[in-house]
């Protein structure tokens, strides 16, 4: 039996464990809600991780899948949420590497098998690579946040004034807001 087949068979359990590892990073009160509220609209965070991790798992074990854009697209909904929650960057993407531990624990004694250990090494390298992509996605989300901060109301207001050819009138209105930095 090769690692690939074994992982495919164990997908449901592994993704479930991974999901709980992610959910554990929230407070006890919230994690129960994120995990148990199955309504995707009442619990969009839970939905994103449930669906996202399952897709990510498929990408991970598919050694043909090396397109960072597709992998990034799969990571995006999850990272996008963690990028605006109260996490440090390390914590925001750390859940990816949790999968290594989950995997090793799940394989148990089978790890000793030479076939397995080689395949496992390759898989762990893939996890590392995914981690780097996750970092890109995280930065993209953060940059978006900073851009939105910069753009917000002032920019839109400015645009409307600009369209109206009223830009010279703006300092008066804006002077009030200049203490924002």
């Amino acid at each position: 039996m090769d690692l690939d087949r074994r992982l495919r068979q164990r997908k449901k359990e592994l993704v479930q464990k991974w999901f709980h590892a992610v959910i554990e990073t929230y407070s006890a009160d919230a994690s129960r809600f994120f995990a148990n509220q199955k309504d995707p609209f009442a619990n969009p965070v839970g939905r994103a991780f449930r669906e996202g991790l399952s897709g990510l798992f498929d990408h991970l074990i598919n050694s043909e899948q090396n397109d960072p854009r597709q992998i990034g697209a799969c990571l995006d909904p999850m990272i996008r949420i963690r990028a605006v929650q109260n996490f440090l960057p390390s914590q925001a993407i750390g859940f990816l590497f949790d999968f290594k531990k989950i995997l090793r624990k799940d394989l148990g004694d089978a790890l000793e098998h030479p076939d397995f250990s080689d395949a496992l090494k390759r898989l762990e390298e893939r996890i590392d690579a995914f981690g780097l992509i996750a970092f890109d996605v995280f930065m993209r989300c953060r940059e978006k946040i900073y851009q939105l901060k910069a753009d917000d109301l002032r920019e839109r207001t400015f645009k409307a004034f600009e369209r109206a050819g009223l830009v010279h009138d703006i300092p008066q209105a804006n002077a009030e807001k200049d203490h924002y930095h």
């Binding site: 509220q37 199955k38 309504d39 995707p40 609209f41 009442a42 939905r47």
Partner: peptide
């Protein structure tokens, strides 16, 4: 309580 069943089909519980 809504639930997504296979694909994007909605059902209520």
């Amino acid at each position: 309580k809504a639930r997504l069943k296979g694909g994007e089909r909605l059902s209520y519980e």
